[in-house]
């Protein structure tokens, strides 16, 4: 692939701006969700143990804390799935468009 434009030119290209802007937003939003998810869980343990100790159902043994902990694990995985799905479809299309332009 021949580079005809300088990096500076490409960075100003609207397609590149769209690509980097979208990727930054998605990465930052998902990172913040993950931080809230995990540190929210930690905050519950630190400040509200009785909440986690509640029984899920009358007469049952399972506490609310168990699905919350397992849910944190599963949700974390789902978040990576959302990112990968977005990147494999939307992001890669944009990358291809920018690459085609450069390859010109």
């Amino acid at each position: 692939m021949k580079e005809q434009k300088t990096a500076h030119d490409i960075l100003q290209d609207p397609d590149f701006k769209k690509l980097s802007g979208q990727k930054d937003s998605i990465s930052v939003i998902l990172t913040i969700i993950e931080l809230l998810l995990y540190f929210g869980f930690i905050a519950l343990i630190a400040f509200n143990k009785p909440f986690l100790a509640q029984k899920l159902s009358e007469g049952g043994a399972t506490t609310i804390g168990i699905p919350i902990a397992i849910g944190t694990i599963i949700l974390s995985w789902i978040l990576t799935g959302i990112y990968v799905r977005w990147a494999n479809t939307k992001y890669d299309t944009l990358v291809k468009r920018v690459k085609d332009k450069i390859g010109g």
Partner: peptide, 10 residues
Amino acid sequence: LVGWPIVTFL
């Protein structure tokens, strides 16, 4: 586990 999403996103 929770470090892995960070590796993915950033």
